[in-house]
């Protein structure tokens, strides 16, 4: 059985085992200190704060790629499982209920937001890469705006050519009424986020319906335009999903720093007032 496991499955099993052991060890410690509510709160609070601090160091590690501090992928694994550990300790610490006091409630919410953004980040980083690959050509994010502009220019050229050669305005009218807007900015962000192709299918269907109003020579141009619509859809999909993959950290990291600061204040206050 073990020999048929892939490297990643083996790693997942080991890490999960380590996580369970860490939780068990923490639980035993809590039990040892269980005689005093205050002591267990300090233990769980300090463990939680320490874990969050170590988790936050991952960002610092990323800024020091040339210093031998283990591979970033090892840090990612640690980050994921230590993150789950922090969630467990958090519920030990808060006792699964909303705390009293406005500051504590704010802290509670910030922790949940950090954890949730982390889990979302993990989910999208596992789902989006293959979706990006299967959807269309692999593109470099920074080049997408330029490619979009180029595509729009190409589409306008096709429309001009179509008008000149066929003397028919069906495509030109469609461009003015609908396609111009479609090609000029990023579209269908929400649909791309959930992996739906509904919008592009509707649009190509609508374009196909136009065939009956066209002369034969115009249909050749229509086919080209449909290809451009699909290419634009891929650009939007790549921009949306790559953008989310890049920018979710802009939520997760600032929230983490707020959490650390608030956690520190909370700890100091707790120590001072007890």
């Amino acid at each position: 059985m073990a020999s048929t496991l892939t490297f990643f499955s083996k790693r997942r099993l080991i890490n999960f085992g380590l996580l369970l052991s860490a939780v068990a060890a923490f639980w035993v410690l809590q039990e040892i200190y269980a005689n005093g509510i205050h002591a267990t709160a300090i233990l769980s609070g300090a463990t939680l704060f320490g874990t969050c601090l170590v988790l936050a160091l991952f960002n610092a590690r990323k800024k020091l790629p040339f210093i031998p501090l283990l591979k970033a992928s090892t840090w990612t694994q640690f980050h994921i499982y230590a993150g789950w550990f922090a969630v467990v300790v958090f519920f030990f610490h808060t006792g699964l209920r909303l705390p009293d006091g406005r500051f504590e409630i704010a802290l509670y919410i910030v922790f949940l937001a950090v954890a949730l953004s982390g889990v979302l980040g993990l989910i999208i980083s596992r789902i989006y890469p293959s979706r990006l690959r299967l959807y269309g050509e692999n593109l470099i994010y920074e080049r997408i705006p330029g490619l979009r502009q180029q595509l729009q220019t190409d589409v306008e050229k096709i429309i001009w050519k179509s008008v000149n050669e066929t003397k028919s305005f069906t495509l030109a009218r469609m461009y003015e009424s609908k396609l111009k807007d479609y090609f000029s900015t990023k579209k269908n962000t929400l649909l791309h986020l959930v992996g739906s192709e509904e919008a592009v299918n509707d649009l190509t269907e609508e374009l196909n319906q136009l065939q009956r109003y066209m002369v034969a020579s115009e249909r050749v141009f229509l086919a080209e335009i449909i290809e451009c619509v699909k290419a634009k859809d891929n650009l939007d999909m790549q921009a949306t999903c790559q953008g989310v993959l890049k920018y979710w950290l802009f939520i997760h990291i600032p929230l983490t720093f707020s959490l650390l600061l608030m956690g520190l204040l909370h700890g100091l206050m707790a120590l001072a007032f007890n």
């Binding site: 790629p65 040339f66 293959s130 990006l132 690959r133 994010y141």
Partner: peptide, 28 residues
């Protein structure tokens, strides 16, 4: 492995920071 690569460009940034602020490869 494009099914694992999140296009985060950490590899590009690391390469640039080790080489005259200019990455020595293209993720393409």
């Amino acid at each position: 492995d494009l099914d694992r690569c999140t296009r985060c460009d950490d590899c590009i940034r690391a390469c640039a920071s080790a080489h005259d602020n200019n990455p020595r490869f293209v993720r393409h």
